[in-house]
């Protein structure tokens, strides 16, 4: 199966296509939006609590921030946090899981002890600790992503390790070994390709986790105040009691987009899984 064929089957998968379509749409929104609608999302020069009208297509919030502009910037930054979280988690998880699984022995025990400890610490607590230590005024989106991945990687690392452990006993790996290949070469040539699908699916799922996690941290007020994200929009809505006052335009569109983002990522993940897994098992 070459890359073109792969893409062809992938794009013939309904779930993947729907998910991909939604993400593409949101990406377009987040990049074209600010160009076509150049309004500062933090500017408070507008009348507060304006419902949607010709001037403010999605209205304004209590401080007079333009909701449509907040959303354009919010999607982009939320996606950024998500992708970054996915990347960090995957990278740490793969490195730890691979080393642990291939090398075994003492190193494996130390690494697994570490993952167990990190797994035991409640994520939110860790986040609060780190962010209050650094001070959230100094915090940046990269830090948010890092904090989220710190709580996410142990699960992934353990999954990788257990897959490596079973792959290691496969005949073709033994055959590479007895041809004199060292662990590094085996890891890259024989093991990693087998983890590709699983890693890709996990990556998409961790993007999702990053986006949702950012919302959670934002609602707790633990994310940088000067960067707009979907979580931040909901945070502003929450602290201004928009829910109670029925100012729906300040939270419904952002909330919907957030859910849509989540669902489309899930669709993409299951789509990839559907397309590749039976094939890999059959081979």
């Amino acid at each position: 199966m070459n890359i073109l064929e792969t893409l062809y089957v992938l794009f013939n998968n309904k779930r993947f296509m729907i998910g991909f379509g939604i993400i593409l749409f949101q990406l377009l929104l987040s990049f074209l939006g600010p160009l076509l609608y150049p309004v500062d999302p933090f500017s408070t020069d507008n009348p507060p609590w304006t419902p949607p009208n010709e001037v403010y297509p999605l209205g304004t919030d209590r401080s007079g921030r333009d909701v449509l502009s907040m959303i354009f910037h919010g999607i982009r930054n939320s996606l950024y946090v998500g992708v970054l979280t996915g990347l960090f988690t995957i990278i740490i998880g793969i490195i730890v899981g691979l080393i642990s699984g291939i090398k075994g022995g003492l190193l494996d025990e130390i690494l697994m002890a570490m993952t167990n400890i990190v797994m035991l610490i409640p994520g939110v607590l860790l986040a609060i600790l780190i962010i209050t230590y650094i001070g959230y005024e100094n915090a940046r989106l990269e830090l948010v992503a890092l904090v989220l991945s710190i709580t996410a990687w142990p699960g992934f690392a353990r999954a990788v390790r257990s897959q490596v452990l079973s792959l290691r006993e496969r005949e073709f790996v033994y055959l590479s070994r007895i041809a004199g290949y060292n662990s590094l070469k085996i890891a890259f040539q024989d093991i990693l390709p087998h983890l590709a699908t699983f890693t890709l699916v996990s990556f998409v799922n961790y993007i999702n986790l990053g986006i949702n996690g950012e919302v959670g941290l934002s609602i707790l007020g633990l994310t940088p105040m000067n960067i707009m994200t979907l979580g931040k929009i909901l945070y502003f809505a929450a602290i201004t009691q928009a829910f109670i006052l029925g100012k729906w335009w300040t939270f419904i569109p952002a909330g919907l987009l957030q859910v849509l983002l989540s669902v489309s990522l899930l669709l993409i993940a299951t789509g990839i899984d559907e397309v590749f897994n039976p094939r890999l098992r059959g081979m």
Partner: peptide, 10 residues
């Protein structure tokens, strides 16, 4: 090895 399919990395 015994199982010819398992001898090859797909």
């Amino acid at each position: 090895f015994q199982n010819p399919f398992a001898n090859f990395n797909p």
